[in-house]
Each structure stands twice: as C-alpha cells, then as structure tokens.
C-alpha cells in the first residue's frame, strides 16, 4: 500500500511533487462556498464551537463540561489517550450523539439539535479513521453517494471527483473495485478524498493514523499539511502526539472525559508533566 503512494510523492519528499500540485489545482478549482447569509454572517465567530457539553451513555456520564473552538483557517488537534472521551466528543460535534447538556454552534448558530445528516449539508464533513468508507460500494459509488444529498450539478460533481483523484492515483486506478477490497491505507485515502470533494467548511478527521504502516501515515500527513497550508479549517483527533503537534495551530487535550488543556502546542509541551504522565510514563507518579 505504501507503493501506491510513493509515485505520487515524486522525488522530493512527501510534501513536494504531484500531491501538492494536484491539491492546489483542486483547491483553485473548487468554488468557495458563499458565506451563508442566513448564518448571521458573524465572521468572527468560530466555525465550530462547543460549550459545556455533557454526554451520558445510559446512566454513565462520559463527557463533562467540554468546550472547544475551531476558528476559520485553523487546524485544531484533539488529543488524549484511549478512553479519554475524544471519540464521544467528536460524535457529539458531528450530531451522532445527543448531549445531555451544553450547546454546539456552527458559525455562531446553535446546531445542538441538528441531525448529523443536516450538519453534513452545512459543510461539517467527517473522515473517520479505519471505518469511514462503505465497503460494499465501489470506489466510484463512494464518491457518487456523498453527492446524492447535495445540490452540486452533475458536471461539477464529475469535475471535482476527477480533480481530487489526480491527487490519489491509487484510487483512480481502482474506481470500480469495491471499497472493501482496498488496503487500509487506500481506504483512508478514499475517506479523505471523498470528504475533500465537498470543499468542507470544516474537515473533521478522526484517527488518521489508526493501524496504518508508518510510510502510509507519512503520505497521508503530507496531504493534511497541504490542506492546512491552503487554509482549510480542520479538527483532527489523534493519538499520536507528534503528528498532532506538527500539524496543528492549537491543541485541546482530554483526560477522563474533560478537556484539561487548550492552547498552542508549545504550551502543552511546556506542561511537561502532563505529557510525561500520560504518554511516556514518567512524571509525578513514577
């Protein structure tokens, strides 16, 4: 699967070569979504914001008073160990889980009760690590499906899909293969590519590196870095600390269902004890 990505990289490192060029073409080609007039036009408001979110599964509360802000053009990482509540937080932001308390805002507008389907329509597009594709559909159908709920004209769909596929030659060669037959890396590429054709207001990426070989992850990161350079607003959930620190403008750190740190990556690093404790097993308790 690493081989599939390698030719795309050209010769000069993961960020250079065809990926960057293709993505640039794609970004230029995409019509920017007109700022939604009905969204009270508050450009200063964060693209996505959560305030005081509580989430419970049955009688067990798993999220406590969580806040997050993702501003336009920003890349924010949501960090934390297994079971810290990152996925639940994400589910609440995407509308898959209803919070028992708190509010989610999109461009300043309350979307707490909005369905996940409608949020996708507004431009909140998710890439789910390891499971974001429809294995029973072909690659082409995976693209086609996500357009069926939007009002993008047919010609435009084709153009966007073709342009995106330039950056993902491995997918372009396998358009009529069912997604279930793809390798893990290719599936992740598909999930990412399928999100990109929608020119998301905010791209929410869950566990990009989940279970993938290092070289594959590297190539995927290159793509995300390019998106960041182009000003794509992103919220990234990661386990891997350095990926997050490398990619992000701001970091929110979760522990046991609470956001315990929010700020620039440098400050999180300065809080050495926190990182040590959680990731490296040193720190206060050892």
């Amino acid at each position: 699967m690493a081989d599939d990505l390698a030719p795309a990289d050209g010769g000069d490192g993961p960020t250079g070569g065809r990926v960057a060029a293709a993505l640039e073409r794609l970004q230029r080609g995409l019509r920017r979504r007109e700022p939604d007039a009905h969204l009270d036009g508050d450009t200063a408001a964060p693209v996505l914001q959560a305030r005081n979110l509580d989430v419970s599964y049955g009688s067990v509360q798993v999220l406590f008073d969580c806040n997050i802000d993702v501003r336009r053009g920003e890349t924010v990482a949501l960090l934390g160990t297994n079971g810290a509540g990152k996925s639940t937080f994400l589910r609440a932001l995407l509308g898959l889980t209803a919070p028992s308390r708190g509010v989610v805002r999109f461009h300043g507008r309350d979307i707490t009760r909005m369905s996940a389907e409608a949020r996708f329509g507004r431009g909140i597009v998710a890439v789910r690590g390891g499971q974001g594709v429809f294995p029973g559909l072909t690659v082409a159908e995976n693209f086609a499906l996500s357009f069926t709920t939007t009002s993008v004209p047919a010609a435009e769909r084709q153009r966007r899909t073709d342009q995106t596929l330039v950056a993902f030659p491995a997918l372009a060669e396998r358009l009529h293969l069912s997604a279930g037959e793809l390798s893990g890396g290719q599936r992740q590429q598909l999930a990412l590519a399928r999100a990109l054709v929608h020119d998301p207001e905010i791209l929410v990426i869950d566990e990009l590196s989940l279970g993938l070989a290092p070289i594959v992850v590297q190539a995927l990161i290159a793509i995300v870095e390019d998106l960041r350079a182009k000003g794509q607003t992103m919220l990234i959930v990661e386990q891997s600390m350095n990926i997050a620190l490398e990619l992000c403008d701001r970091v929110d750190y979760m522990e046991k269902g609470r956001v315990t740190f929010s700020g620039p990556p440098g400050e999180l690093l300065a809080q050495g004890e926190l990182i040590d404790t959680v990731f490296f097993g040193t720190g206060a308790r050892s």
Binding site: E117, L145, T150
Partner: peptide, 22 residues
C-alpha cells in the same frame, strides 16, 4: 439514488448519516 442509499445504509448506518443520508 435510493438504491445507492439502501446499500450505503446496509453497509454502515452511521457513515451514511455523515454523508447526509438518513
């Protein structure tokens, strides 16, 4: 389109929601 939606929901109801299919 509906056929595609049916197959998508059969694969994963949750992913279907995330591409706007109810």
């Amino acid at each position: 389109r509906l056929g595609l939606h049916i197959r998508a929901v059969a694969d994963s109801p949750e992913n279907a929601r995330l591409v706007g299919v109810s």
